[in-house]
């Protein structure tokens, strides 16, 4: 397993943004998941007894990242389930249009707003200033969330 991603938030007057740097794409996507959880709650939980198999496909890695983060938001905010782990696997879909696939066996635990330090809702992950690219030895992504 590769090292965890480095995550930092950055200032955006209207909303919130974060940047993730990781050695590979699975770590990058997992770091982005953690960044979103950190915007939703101050004490994100670990572990959990529930499992969810997830498959996503999108044109290009940036769109796939947004779909992945929208899944995280949906699970927490609508299903009240926190995806605490289950690093995603990514691969080209094999089609000529540049599509990518993601699959993951997510670990979930029920959301406890009090215990997890609920901070407030996030509307969506946006295309605003969205970046995902290889940067030398690393992968880097920047995402702005509409809160």
């Amino acid at each position: 397993m590769s090292a965890a991603a480095a995550v930092r938030s950055f200032d955006h007057t209207g909303d919130v943004g974060f940047e993730v740097v990781a050695a590979d794409l699975p770590a990058l996507f997992d770091g982005a998941r953690r960044a979103v959880l950190a915007e939703l709650m101050t004490r994100p939980p670990r572990g959990g007894d529930e499992r969810l198999a997830l498959e996503l496909e999108a044109h290009g890695l940036e769109r796939l990242l947004l779909r992945w983060l929208d899944e995280v938001l949906f699970l927490v905010q609508t299903r009240a389930r926190v995806p605490t782990g289950g690093r995603p696997r990514l691969r080209p879909a094999g089609s000529a249009d540049g599509s990518w696939r993601l699959d993951a066996e997510l670990t979930l635990t029920p959301l406890d707003p009090v215990a997890h330090g609920w901070r407030g809702e996030v509307k969506a992950a946006t295309y605003h200033g969205l970046e995902l690219a290889r940067d030398g030895e690393h992968w880097r992504a920047r995402v702005v969330l509409d809160v």
Partner: peptide, 29 residues
């Protein structure tokens, strides 16, 4: 959340359909 999801769904749908519309977007959002 209902409105947020409508926006998310249709941004994706419009991006998929864009090649058929025949115009370029200066920003995907």
């Amino acid at each position: 959340g209902l409105g947020h999801q409508v926006c998310t769904d249709f941004v994706e749908r419009f991006l998929d359909a864009l090649p058929r519309f025949g115009f370029e977007l200066p920003d995907r959002q």
